[in-house]
Design a protein around this nucleic acid. Structure first.
Lengths: 237, 237
DNA sequence: ACAAAAGTGTTGGTGCTACACCCATGA
DNA sequence: TCATGGGTGTAGCACCAACACTTTTGT
């Protein structure tokens, strides 16, 4: 083992941010991603994942959250480490190792990142050609989102504290891009939900009940949860 | 975004190596882990995961494989990224971010790391107090190994090219620490196996057939496999 | 009354667990 | 022929998808 690291390797964090918006083609709710325009070489003017360098006194998750806020204004309700990308040739200039996170933001949080010259939202299935290996990274993050939504309660992070079963189902349908049977969906999730006393009136139909997540019910699959102490995953809201 | 990274952060790779050996208490096959003795501060003389610094022209997986070979002599048949650990206080001296891999080695490969002053094998359920946060890391790696063995074909990496169903089942039992029904185990795995013409004679019972993995059968859950191009996961043997 | 969505019941299929049972070999 | 593990068959149960059906509101 060498006595000290060779420098020249730059350590970055980036984050794939997911929010739901109406899809321009189908009109249904769909997954969108905010990207930032690169303002220097390499890949000048290309769209890229928000991110930046890790500075001294912060954990990796803190660095991801800070860079997120600085570049897009977004404060996510869920943040989880995705993968460390470190191939030699992934940046054309110098050697960069990126630790990538993925995040979920609610509609109200997403409004903090308004489209402009340097930030723009894209539908996840209509991305331009991005800087570096960011297209590959996003594909992997989408795969992770879609597999995880089926066995965990992350959809919660895209909604407010209380929600109807139809709202929750719409989140799942937007992520999985397929309709779900309302009757079966109810039975799948109701074990981890607590009904509230409130209902939503105003629609021209039977008023649906509002639910909240049952804090007692833990996930079956914990993923990095068993060492959430290390700051790997967190639910901010 | 700052113009360049602040240095003072050291980038390391470490690997949790798994092999099977007889457990001293039960006499059954069990998971063992080789550790290396630290030869400098901090945590001088404590046992730790094999690892080292990332040098310029190699991918993260290559760096892990190289450090593995240099410190323990082991060349694994399976290597996969586990997690990036980067809490500020995890090293008492300077700031270290460690990208941790986990590896599987066959019995013959494990012999390369013979017990000595600086390398020693420990049963996974009887580890000493290790340097840094390495106890936590190993617990997470064990969780990953145990969950992944149930839905993927990684047990393959702990056996030779051909093997009997009982051998394969013993690998699963050692990892999961519980007996499995031979009849049901067969049905679970036989879809991804190809029977060979050979059988093993010599036991005082019906000679079991030898099987090999069916290369056509892909995993259902791909994990980081969908971007194996990035060198994330690899089956070396 | 009717439309629309909320919510419940039911049925058929699929897959898994537990365990009974037969098979092939060495001693 | 007996002991031993290899290998097959099967009944019971849990779970799940599909879809019929009832409930409750607004108009």
């Amino acid at each position: 083992m060498a006595d000290s690291p060779r420098d020249g390797i730059q350590l970055a964090v980036s984050t794939v941010i997911f929010a739901l918006r109406e899809h321009p083609d189908t009109g249904l709710s769909a997954v969108w991603i905010p990207l930032v325009r690169r303002i220097k070489e390499p890949f000048l003017d290309r769209w890229a994942l928000p991110g930046g360098w890790v500075t001294e006194p912060e954990s990796l998750a803190d660095a991801a959250a800070r860079n997120l806020l600085e570049t897009t204004g977004v404060q996510p309700s869920y943040l989880e480490q995705l993968y460390a990308f470190g191939d030699v040739e992934r940046s054309t200039s110098s050697r960069v190792v990126s630790i990538v996170y993925w995040a979920l933001v609610r509609a109200d949080q997403a409004e903090q990142a308004t489209d402009g010259d340097n930030v723009r939202w894209f539908p996840a299935d209509h991305l331009p050609e991005l800087a570096f290996d960011h297209n590959v990274i996003i594909e992997y993050a989408l795969w992770r989102l879609r597999t995880k939504v089926e066995y965990s309660r992350i959809a919660h992070a895209l909604l407010g504290e209380t929600f109807t079963l139809t709202e929750l189902r719409n989140v799942h349908e937007a992520i999985l891009r397929k309709p779900l049977d309302p009757a079966n969906f109810r039975r799948q999730v109701e074990g981890s939900l607590q009904p509230t006393d409130a209902v939503v009136s105003g629609g021209r139909h039977r008023p649906p009940r509002l639910y909240r997540y049952n804090a007692n019910t833990e996930l079956v699959d914990n993923g990095p949860l068993s060492h959430e102490k290390t700051g790997s995953t967190r639910v901010i809201s």
